[in-house]
Amino acid sequence: MAAPDPKRPTYTAEAIPSDVKNGLFLGNPALDNLMSCMIAMGAEVWATKRRLHVMEAVMAQKGIEADRDRFVDLTLGPLANEAYRPVGSNFPKR
């Protein structure tokens, strides 16, 4: 995270921090932390799932046949090459 440039005015004043973050609700700080982690993790998992939904929608709209064919041609197309000759015997000597 870039440090703020002190030359750029921000029109801010010091805030009085809330103490809510220090509240212990579940009897054990580890449990409180785990609950916070679970909800944050939920947001991250959903972000990933939503990205997959977007990709699926884009693929459904645009189609991926052309890209699939390009992929297969690039990776497996060389299997069709029949012009090989051993380089140690009658391969042109240059």
Binding site: P4, T10, Y11, T12, A13, E14, A15, I16, S18, V20
Partner: peptide, 23 residues
């Protein structure tokens, strides 16, 4: 001069309405 009573982090928003340039 911003009175103290207006500098709280309402809704626990970090920096409240006065302390964060991107509030």
């Amino acid at each position: 001069a911003i009175p103290d009573y207006l500098r709280h982090e309402i809704h626990i928003q970090p920096g409240g309405y006065v302390g964060d340039p991107f509030a």
